[in-house]
Amino acid sequence: MKYIIVGGGNSVYYLSRSLTSKGHHITIINRNHNECTHLARKLKAVIINSDASNKKILEQAGASSADAIFVITLNDHDNLVICQLSQTIFNIPKIFTLVDDPDNEFIFNQLGVEKVLSINRILTSLIEEKTGYDDVTNLLSLAEGKVNFTKVKLTPASPILNKNLSDISMPENTLIAVIIRNVNPIIPRGSTTLQADDQLIVLNRPTEHSKVIRLLTGEK
């Protein structure tokens, strides 16, 4: 496979090292001359020392025949323009990028860039989950944000305690996947009842999210 990687830092190096060892053909575009020199010494890859938000440079990097491009510079605005050029001008089949500002996952999706990940958002939700301060934690989202994984801790105020799951009318497109009770995971069935301090791992579509949370927590 032919991959283009745009950006710098250790993540570009490790990603390229892993991909070249699997026999893939890598071209790296990086604006920093020193970094390019280091990468060229350590990797079996084509290194282009230039700005990738330019049609000619992308063309030179083989964008018209690339199988995928990974755009992981540290600037969200550069990543956006590079992804959009890759998409609209070169039709690269797989485009993946990172964003710094978690809000930009949504912004990029809206502007036509679908495969976007914010390390900061993942980190934030991981930390929130580990510290367990909130009753509701967004764990992750899948399928370009169309499926949410949420952890909900039931408080004594929850209106659905001591009921059979089958008697609770859940919103559509919602599933209680796992119940964690005193550290033990339970795969729920219709006859399972919920207790205070249970932690539920819930799968749902974002459209039903607030409805589900209201149902489980009893909060308005």
Binding site: S53, N75, D76, H77, L80, V81, I107, Q110, L111
Partner: peptide
């Protein structure tokens, strides 16, 4: 002073 910032901001303003 940065083209890419202008392009991104302009799209956010117009499309979103």
């Amino acid at each position: 002073r940065d083209d890419n910032i202008n392009i991104m901001c302009a799209q956010i303003a117009r499309n979103i």
